[in-house]
Structures are given as C-alpha cells and as structure tokens.
C-alpha cells in the first residue's frame, strides 16, 4: 500500500512525517524560548540584537525555511489524517466512552493542533511580518526595534489572554505529542518509554509555561 502511494500518501508515511516534523518543531520551541527570555532577563537591545541575528545569519535562514515547510507539512498531514480517521467511521457509536482508552489530549490532537496553527498565523502577522516587511523603528544599536512592538502587544489584555490560552493548547498538544512521536517511529522500550513519557510531559509543562509567563510578566510588570 505504502509503495503505491509513495512517501507522502499513505497513512503510515503521513504518521512518520508527523512524528519527524513534530520533533523538529519541538527543538525550534527551545531556541525560540531562549530568545524570548531576553525580554525578561535582558534589555530591549539584547532582544533586538537576537531578532536581527535570527533574521540575517544565513544558516539560520536556511533552517527557517525548513521550519516553515515543517509547519505546513505537519499541519497538512495532521488535517488529512484527522479527516481520514473520521471517514473510517461513517456511523458513530451510540455510546462512546473515549476516556476509557485514551487521555483527553490524545483524543483532541487535531483540535489542539488547529488552534495552535491559528495562533501561529496571528503570531506571525504580529511579529514575523512586521519584522520582515513592516516599518519598524531602529533602536540605539541600529537594530529593528521588535522589543517595543512586542511589549506593546503584550500590554493589551486580550492579546496576552489569547497567547496564554494558545500556550495551554500547545502544552496539551505536546503532553501527548512528544511521546507519541517516539511511539510512531517505533522507538519504544519497556524501560525507556516511561522515561520518554515523563520527559515529554515535563517539557510540555515547562516550555509552554515559560512561554505563557513572559507576556503575563510584561502585562503585570510596570517597568517593561
């Protein structure tokens, strides 16, 4: 079956792509978070220098195209798989006790994923678009002043609320997704799988929590 539909078409191939792109996107989250921490622990100039570096250093640029492709593939395959899954059960169960077999996050990956995608679009419009094509002022070092734009956005309650809810969705997505990627790839072991599961959940809480805390910090702290 897989050979007839090639490297992209079969459900199994799609699952592999989901897992691989998912794991890649997870590594990106770490890099992104480290940069964001400059908002809290550094100066506005530090943050702007970081942003300038990320948009100009050639190897990073190459990786960023890989990143955009991964997001597109992850989302497209995820939607295709969810649709396929729904189509496989045209008549629904009269009574369905889903919690008996799988956790809430596991059963709602598509929903959580779509919400996260929506967030990414808004997020990219707010910052990525402005950084690349908008008319941002320059800071003292001559870098585009993304810092002012960012803090201004986070001082709006609705924007921060949306951001925090999105991080919650991403957290649940990773709560299941991290471990599930290993499962899909067949990297399972009686001893190591529970460790992977623990690390995945700890990662979801820590990384998404840290992301969410930054706008809250900006909103609450009068100094920024």
């Amino acid at each position: 079956m897989a050979s007839q539909r090639g490297l992209f078409g079969s459900s199994l191939a799609r699952k592999y792509w989901m897992a691989l792109t998912g794991l890649f996107l997870i590594t990106f989250l770490v890099v992104h978070l480290l940069g964001n921490l400059a908002i809290v622990f550094g100066t506005g100039e530090d943050f702007n220098a970081y942003a300038a570096f990320m948009t100009s250093f050639p190897p990073i640029k190459i990786v960023s195209y890989l990143l955009y492709a991964s997001i597109v593939l992850h989302a497209a395959d995820g939607i295709a798989l969810a649709r396929q899954n729904r189509a496989a059960r045209p008549v629904a169960y009269g009574t369905y006790h889903g919690a008996a077999n799988a956790g809430w996050a596991s059963r709602n990956m598509a929903l959580l994923g779509i919400f996260t995608l929506l967030f990414i679009l808004v997020h990219m419009k707010s910052f990525w678009y402005e950084m690349h094509f908008g008319s941002l002022g320059l800071d003292a070092n001559g870098n585009k002043d993304l810092f002012t734009l960012t803090t201004a956005a986070f001082e709006q309650v609705w924007y921060t609320a949306f951001y925090v809810v999105a991080m919650l969705a991403l957290g649940f997505h990773l709560w299941h997704g991290f471990q599930s990627a290993f499962q899909t790839m067949g990297w399972t072991h009686p001893t190591y799988t529970p460790i992977v599961q623990f690390v995945g959940r700890a990662f979801a809480v820590a990384v998404c929590g840290a992301f969410a805390l930054i706008p809250l910090y900006v909103l609450i702290s009068p100094n920024v």
Partner: peptide
C-alpha cells in the same frame, strides 16, 4: 448496558 457492533467502514 449498551451493546453495539464495531463501527468502522472497514
């Protein structure tokens, strides 16, 4: 008690 058959296109 509710008892149903498997529900799947396959």
């Amino acid at each position: 008690i509710t008892v149903e058959p498997w529900r799947a296109k396959a």
